[in-house]
Design a protein around this nucleic acid. Sequence first.
DNA 1: AAGTGCCG
DNA 2: AGTC
Length: 216
Amino acid sequence: MADLFTPLLAEEPAREALADGAMLLRGLALPFASALIEAIHGIAAISPFRHMVTAGGHAMSVATTNCGAAGWVSDRSGYRYDAIDPETRKPWPEMPECFAALAELAAIQAGHAQFRPDACLINRYVPGARLSLHQDRNERDFAQPIVSVSLGLPAIFRFGGIRRNDPVRKFALHHGDVVVWGGPARLRFHGVAELKDGFHDQLGRQRINLTFRRAR
DNA sequence: AAGTGCCG
DNA sequence: AGTC
C-alpha cells in the first residue's frame, strides 16, 4: 500500500524552530484561508480598519481592527486592551469560530497547550507598510503564547531577542504560514519589514496578519 | 514609564 | 543596505 507519496501525505505541516519556544508552521492556515478572509470582511464591516496613533503621536502605517472580548488599541495616551472599539463605541466583533479553532490548533502544534485567546488583533499591510521592532507586553499572562497568522502578500518577519539590541533574524512569511512564540520566547522583540509591492490572488495588494493573544 | 513611530 |  505504501508508495512514494505516502510519506508526503502523512507528513505534518513543515515546521521550523525559530528559537527556543518559537515555531514557524508553514501553511498551517491554508485550509482555513477562505473562511478566515470571509470572516475578516465581516469584522471590518462592523469595526473598520483604521490607522491608530502611537504615544509619540505618529500614525501607524499598518491599519488595524480587532475581534474578541478585548482589542488592542493605541492613541496618544498609550497602548492598552479595551473591550470597546473607540471608533464605534461598541464592543469589538465576536471572535469567529474558525479563528479560535486555528489559534488553538497552532498553539498545540507548537507545543503550547491550553491557549485560550480572548483577543485577535487584525493588521492590514499595504505595500510600504511596516511594523517596527517591539515586544507584546501589554497582556496579563505571559504564560500564554502569541499566535500570528499570515494571509495575502508575503512579508519579511523580523525576530529578535529579549533585549532590544539583540541580533535580529529574518524569515519570509507566506500566505497560510503561522508563527507561534511563547515560554522563553514570549517577550522576544519582533516586527515586519516594509512590505514589498505585489499581487495576491485572494487579497490583492495587501497582507493581513491575525495576532491572537490572551489579553486578560 | 514608555511603547508597534520617523528621520538622518 | 544595515545599523545607530
